[in-house]
């Protein structure tokens, strides 16, 4: 009995402490509330922190993204860029901080509701469905709009058929937009790498997201393919009005493409501003020159 009540007391105390810790950042919360109520802010992060086995991948990162901008997040290897995008898309759960997507605030974004929240993403390493054709891969991007059950599909009832027709039409538009007509009926796994990256962009765009997260969309591409992809990203913003968060390694591409750039280094945001401001920022130069000489030979162009 005594043991049990002691245990209960300790538990209560622990949950009290964690409750205090959870609201430890009232300033940040107020800031988030203010930001998320602004209609021109699509996404706002406040005080995001995450660690993996004692290693802090991100600490106290704030970020806001306005409607219709291309917002780049750059940084050396291991700076926490992919962790950030995985937190926004709900694949990782942040230890601290909150995320506001289109006016709804989360401490953990529900990944399974992501598409319905108006967020689509691509993956750093291709995440296509190898057993499906290009067209069917893209059509899967609209799966969140489907309501018909499997029985309706087997029986070919009107709702299933009209959904199929609507999705086929949207798919055709995106296929044309990204010039994928000639490969549309091929198995996606048989395409060259650059085209597969483009199919992934198509699958994200067909969802007609408000916010599009691109995790290194140009990684491993040739210079020509990069230029082509940059053109598609810009066109997606200009024609479809989608807001874009772009994580990229190639700084040259980023500076030409984005409206604002945030720079991460060792999990902290060290700079945030227009490409010109960021390029002139001494902290950024130090971070990049430092790693350029030390580790992975990146240069700032």
């Amino acid at each position: 009995m005594i043991g049990a009540s002691l245990g209960a007391a300790a538990y209560e105390r622990a949950s009290e402490i964690s409750a205090i810790l959870a609201v430890a950042n009232p300033v940040g919360d107020r800031r988030l509330a203010r930001l998320s109520s602004r209609p021109d802010v699509v996404l706002a992060l406040s005080g995001i922190g995450i660690s993996f086995g004692g290693v802090k991948a991100l600490s106290d990162v704030d970020l806001e993204v306005e409607v219709g901008e291309i917002r780049a997040v750059i940084g050396p290897n291991g700076a926490g860029k992919s962790s950030l995008i995985n937190i926004i898309s709900g694949l990782y759960h942040a230890d601290r901080g909150r995320i506001a997507i289109g006016g709804q605030s989360f401490s953990r974004v529900p990944a399974s509701r992501l598409a319905r929240l108006g967020v689509a993403r691509t993956f750093q390493n291709l995440a296509l469905f190898g057993g499906l054709s290009v067209r069917n891969n893209i059509a899967c991007g609209r799966v969140h709009t489907r309501r018909a059950s499997f029985v309706e599909h087997i029986a070919g009832l009107p709702r299933a058929r009209s959904e199929d027709a609507g999705i086929a039409e949207k798919t055709d538009q995106i296929v044309a937009f990204l010039h994928l007509e000639s490969v549309a009926d091929r198995l996606v796994a048989t395409l060259p790498y650059g085209l597969q990256k483009r199919v992934e962009l198509a699958r994200a765009l067909v969802a007609e997201p408000k916010l599009l997260l691109l995790d290194e969309p140009m990684a491993g591409m040739t210079a020509t393919e990069k230029a082509e992809m940059a053109g598609f990203v810009r066109a997606a913003r200009d024609r479809h009005g989608v807001t874009i968060i772009l994580i990229e390694h190639d700084i040259g591409v980023v500076m030409g493409l984005s409206d604002r750039v945030a720079v991460l280094d060792y999990g902290r945001k060290i700079a945030d501003g227009t490409p010109a401001e960021v390029r002139a920022d001494p902290a950024v130069i130090r971070a990049y020159i430092g790693t350029a000489e030390g580790e992975n030979g990146e240069d700032i162009r």
Binding site: S112, R113, A120, A127, C140, V143, H144, R203
Partner: peptide, 10 residues
Amino acid sequence: DNETAARVIG
């Protein structure tokens, strides 16, 4: 083929 991607697209 890719459970994570499937979940994210809905």
